[in-house]
């Protein structure tokens, strides 16, 4: 029974990881390896030509630059806006506080994919198509982040801030020297989530960019032209190059990742 379970588990896990493993292996394939009989799972030799071609025959480096730049700036702005809003909603009392909070959080109910036509028209009217600001504009607000940060900030008593302010501490100082270090874990988790959301976005960057030089990696990856000509090697090389750093990070950090999900989603 125990061996059966371990065997089934291992077989299923190999099936799940197969596309990733195959992509890495196929990134070293020579052209003929794809059509070899019997079909090959491993390359005939360590051939790095696909990597050279992926970079020299496409705008891969430029796509990656665009994605990293938009994801870093986007994450920074998104976290700043979320932290400022959550801080205000947790530590200040002002007229209309609850109504305004609900107004912001209620947008969780509006799926952004269904708003793309109207949002595209706005971005076009603002002449922001083919700009970095256009790419990140719709991801700058994360109602879920404001909601979760406020839940977290509220664990700290309001009197803390009041006492600090009376002692002459500014809000900026209170936030950066006290609140942020205290909420390091949740802020970091949300920042990582933001980064991967913006970095992995597909439909929106596809719509607001037209020039090849403005494409993000997720969009550019599907338009490299290799796979259409059944020239799979460079395409697999580009994908492998892109996913390897994240795979390594996930494997190295697998314990904290599993733990954080356990705490965040089941409350224990």
């Amino acid at each position: 029974m125990r061996t059966l379970r371990a065997t089934l588990s291992t077989l299923l896990s190999l099936l799940v990881v197969f596309p990733i493993a195959y992509a890495i292996s196929a990134s070293f394939f020579r052209y003929a390896d794809f059509t070899a009989l019997p079909p090959r799972l491993f390359p005939s030799g360590l051939n790095l030509g696909n990597y050279v071609r992926a970079f020299s025959e496409s705008f891969l480096a430029r796509f990656l630059f665009n994605s990293l730049l938009t994801a870093i700036i986007g994450t920074f702005l998104r976290m700043t806006i979320s932290i400022m809003a959550a801080y205000t909603f947790s530590f200040f009392s002002f007229k209309g506080r609850n109504a305004l909070f609900i107004l912001i959080v209620a947008t969780m109910l509006l799926p952004s994919d269904a708003l793309i036509i109207a949002n595209f028209m706005t971005i076009r009217a603002l002449r922001l198509t083919d700009t970095y600001l256009g790419i990140i504009a719709t991801s700058l607000l994360a109602p879920t982040h404001i909601f979760m940060l406020r839940q977290y900030f509220r664990m700290m008593s309001v009197e803390y801030r009041e006492a600090a302010v009376i002692e002459g501490c500014t809000d900026t100082r209170f936030l950066t020297t006290l609140l942020m270090p205290m909420s390091k874990a949740v802020v970091l988790t949300l920042a990582i989530h933001s980064f991967s959301t913006i970095f992995n976005d597909y439909l929106w960057p596809l719509l607001v960019t037209n020039r090849t030089s403005m494409r993000t990696i997720q969009v550019g990856l599907t338009m490299m032209g290799f796979s259409e000509q059944l020239d799979y090697g460079p395409q697999f090389a580009a994908i492998t190059f892109l996913m390897t750093p994240i795979l390594v990070a996930f494997i190295a950090l697998h314990r904290p990742i599993i733990e954080s999900v356990s705490i965040r989603f089941t409350g224990r």
Binding site: S9, T10, L12, S13, L14, V16, V17, P19, I20, Y22, A23, A26, F199, N200, Y202, I217, Q218, V219, L221, T222, S227, Y232, Q235, F236, I239, L242, M243, I246, L247, A249, F250, I251, H254, I257, I258
Partner: peptide
């Protein structure tokens, strides 16, 4: 096994779709 099961999460959406397409 657990690492293998959650690893697809580390692959971007369009990367995963291009892998499957090929």
């Amino acid at each position: 096994n657990r690492i293998f099961f959650f690893l697809p999460m580390a692959v971007g959406m369009s990367s995963m779709l291009m892998i499957l397409k090929m």
